[in-house]
């Protein structure tokens, strides 16, 4: 399917899902749980653009995610600040704008980290991104305006656009974000850009020698990946209503966003989608039925199981099966009739 057709279909499905759920699901908990699942669809898809397509493993997910969230905190407090200092009155900033700003900020941070770290390869790049997450957290901890280490309370607006409660609104935005990130990932995969990314993953030096502008492509990947992560994080303050550095920079976001594509399959856009829906749903179920403390354990066990049994993820298993069937059919066809 062409990218434009796919995008139109995907957005149509997204809208249908929003309308359907909001008409038929009245239980608020559904929206809280679905929001988290969708947030991981965005996060793991974003991670996969860099990690899966170019092969650069980023462990700094929580930094991009939390910076998106903290940009929302700043924007949330902006009208008050402007009023107090310059006696300027502006209306409170709408959520889609905050998402956009969060995306831009994390995208710029992605570009900057890319520029500083992409000369490193393999494990050294991974370590550098991990260090970046720690630096970003330290900055936020020491920034009093956004709450510092004690955190900050964000009061949700009483009224949500599009009717319904605010959580339904956040959920609807997250559906759109998820559809958007999947469309971007799929477009990359089928474009010249994706071919260049795959070349970097396969043999970066050969790609460079052949005239593929590797540094520029890697910067595009870090920027896009970072921007989507920031967008996923931007609505977080309104979702949790209390944001603090320890939980927003939690390593759990990083572990999950890496584990989901690995479990789903990293070579295609559908892998992270499968992985995140599966894993995040299991986690939500476990949180309700057993305990939220179990979440990381589940991820850890599944990750170990997949690395041993199916290192190419669910997608790899399905593809291997299809290949086997195709060979069997080909063999059958090749056999002379008896």
């Amino acid at each position: 399917m062409r990218t434009s057709t796919f995008s139109i279909v995907a957005f149509a499905i997204g809208l249908a899902v929003i309308v359907f759920t909001r008409v038929f699901f009245t239980n608020e908990y559904f929206y809280f749980a679905a929001y988290v699942v969708l947030q991981y669809v965005v996060l793991s898809t974003a991670w996969n653009i860099l990690g899966g397509y170019t092969g650069y493993i980023n462990f700094g997910i929580s930094a991009f995610f939390a910076l998106g969230a903290y940009s929302t905190v700043v924007l949330h407090k902006l009208p008050e600040l402007l009023h107090d200092t310059w006696n300027l009155t502006i209306p409170s900033i709408p959520m889609p704008v905050m998402i956009l700003v969060g995306g831009i900020i994390s995208g710029v941070i992605g570009l900057a980290t890319g520029y500083l770290t992409l000369r490193l390869r393999g494990v050294f790049f991974a370590i550098a991104t991990l260090a970046m997450a720690i630096v970003a957290q330290t900055l936020i901890v020491n920034w009093d305006y956004v709450g510092g280490s004690r955190g900050i309370y964000i009061i949700r607006p009483a009224m949500a656009p599009l009717g319904g409660g605010y959580i339904q609104y956040l959920y609807s935005l997250m559906v759109i974000l998820a559809v958007m990130s999947v469309c971007i990932a799929r477009w990359i995969e089928r474009s010249q850009l994706g071919l260049g990314f795959a070349a970097i993953r396969d043999d970066e030096q050969a790609a460079e020698a052949g005239g593929v502008p590797t540094l520029r492509l890697k910067l595009i990947a870090t920027t896009l990946s970072g921007a989507l992560m920031g967008m996923a994080g931007a609505p977080l303050p309104y979702y949790v209503t209390y944001l603090d550095p320890t939980s927003s920079f939690s390593l759990a976001y990083a572990v999950n966003a890496v584990a989901m594509p690995v479990i789903g399959g990293m070579t295609s856009w559908i892998g992270p989608v499968i992985g995140s829906i599966l894993l995040a749903t299991i986690q939500q179920l476990a949180t309700v039925t057993i305990s939220s403390a179990l979440n990381l354990l589940i991820v850890g066990l599944l990750l170990i199981a997949f690395v041993i049994i199916a290192p190419k993820g669910i997608l790899g298993v399905v593809e291997a099966q299809q290949r086997r069937r195709a060979t069997r059919l080909a063999n059958l066809a090749a056999r002379p009739a008896q």
Binding site: L195, A198, A199, R201, D202, D203, Q205, A206, A207, A209
Partner: peptide, 9 residues
């Protein structure tokens, strides 16, 4: 040298 193809493409 050594061809340096992209083996998985």
């Amino acid at each position: 040298e050594g061809r340096r193809l992209f083996p998985k493409l």
